[in-house]
């Protein structure tokens, strides 16, 4: 990747100026995967056991792999990942939330992977050949993420008193970021109109039912709806993303000519 990185410039706009709608949509997907992959990689060496450490690292690597392909479809992947500032990221707010404890991380994963799985199933049979190809490859990875996160949420929710309390706290933290996953702004509406994007509202019911089923099996109460927090798709991020980027971007920004 680094070989192709442009050392200067192109700090914000996706480089595919020919089709800004497409580049903007692919950027959203790529940023979701990139930021969640970076978040999960923070667990490396800190997970509850060596087996879970590997599970989380595998999820992280899958997501960073997706990001490499998606950002590559939106422009130059390295430039987009390492040379953009926080306001130019288009990921949803859920993926940038701090890991918290293992329960919160697994709740976040369930809420995101379920959404990503339903979305990618549809993108994989979409009209954009490149995007369909990326989604078809990723959908198997994401199916596994969804199942794994679901199994953990069930075990933690229906586990000990402490694990149930931590799972409830994790749900409470993440729940307000779910509505953003189904928000359709003007940009997404345009991408849907030209047949490129999938309107997430088309699978919202299926999503809600799937999450409710997991929570029921986990003997967890579904949290009351909170005031939704939106804005990630417009670059209005929580304070947490800046800290994540500072770590992720430190090396290529400090040593722009570094190769690896």
């Amino acid at each position: 990747m680094a070989e192709q990185a442009r050392p200067h410039g192109a700090f914000d706009a996706p480089s595919d100026a020919h089709d800004p709608i497409r580049a903007g949509y692919v950027l959203r997907l790529g940023d979701d995967s990139l930021i969640l992959g970076q978040r999960l990689s923070e667990w490396c060496g800190h997970a509850p056991s060596v087996e879970v450490d590997l599970s989380l690292s595998n999820l992280a690597l899958d997501l960073v792999g997706q990001a490499t392909l998606l950002l590559g479809a939106a422009g130059d992947a390295d430039t987009l990942a390492f040379k953009r500032d926080v306001l130019d990221f288009r990921n949803c707010l859920l993926v940038e939330q701090p890991n918290g404890d293992f329960a919160r991380t697994m709740v976040r994963q369930l809420l995101f992977s379920t959404w990503q799985h339903l979305l990618y199933q549809r993108l994989a049979v979409g009209t954009d050949e490149q995007l369909a190809g990326i989604a078809a490859k990723a959908v198997k990875e994401v199916a596994y993420h969804r199942e794994l996160a679901g199994e953990w949420v069930v075990r933690l929710g229906d586990g000990t008193e402490e694990s149930a309390r931590r799972t409830a706290d994790g749900l409470d933290w993440c729940w307000r970021f779910v509505p953003e996953l189904f928000e359709v702004d003007a940009e997404l509406e345009e991408a849907c109109r030209c047949g490129l994007a999938v309107d997430p509202r088309s699978f919202e019911e299926e999503y809600r039912a799937s999450i409710a089923a997991v929570l029921q099996e986990a003997k967890m109460a579904q949290p009351a709806d909170q005031r939704p927090i939106l804005g990630g798709r417009r670059g209005h991020h929580s304070e947490h993303l800046g800290h994540l980027l500072a770590i992720m971007q430190y090396l290529p920004r400090t040593y722009p000519d570094a190769k690896w």
Partner: peptide, 20 residues
């Protein structure tokens, strides 16, 4: 070998540890 709380997660841990 892997550590796991039950059979299903043992399979997942085995997958993540030995078939990467």
């Amino acid at each position: 070998s892997v550590h796991a709380p039950d059979a299903e997660l043992a399979l997942r841990h085995a997958r993540d540890t030995y078939t990467r």
